[in-house]
Amino acid sequence: MDIQITEQIIIMLAALVLLTAFAMLVQRKIYGLISLFMWQGIFLALTTAFVGYIAHRYHLYISAVLTLLLKVILLPYILRMLIIKLKISREVESVVNVTSTMLIGIALVIFSYQLTAPIRQNSAFVAQSIIAIALATVMIGLLMMITRRNAVTQIIGFLAMENGLFFAAISATYGMPLVVELGVAIDILIAAFVFGIFSLHINTTFDSLDVDKMAQLKEDY
């Protein structure tokens, strides 16, 4: 394949990752969120594979397969199970003002672009500007955690943030060594389990997954 076309495809995929991040920011329905997360995983895996191809780092193919397994199949499955257990499958979440959230998101994109300017100049990678996208994805994940109330959607926000970090690693240094990546993958998996168990407990204790309710834990003065 032509190098130029591959590059173009990588940039495209990066944009799609960003697009899914924004879509997750405004998606109300929890199933919709999970499928968006799946899509993000798919785009991420594809990016990884293409970067591996263009840079001749073949261990990235393994990373891509790992991403596909973990983020497209396993994690969504766990989340779905969690939702069924918690009986919140049809819940519609109130999102704080969509427009202003998105505005902040756009500001974050500009911010990360400004921030990564020195890195981009030094990087040898062909499509340097996607580092900015990666950083923006991380920040948008964090933003999503801030704006959501439901514990499960916050978990998804966390996972989206991790996606961004993974993406940043790939775009900046062609990915971490395979051992580290495996470790991170297992970490994520365990985190998902722990989160799941916690949410179940939160649900049984408070009869709700709204994290605002946890403010009641605080002593009044």
């Binding site: 920040m139 964090l142 801030i146 704006t147 994290v211 605002d212 946890m214 403010a215």
Partner: peptide
Amino acid sequence: QGRINEYLIYSFVTII
């Protein structure tokens, strides 16, 4: 406040 979201905002602002 005991709200998770606000703690997150603190870390977010600090990062930025």
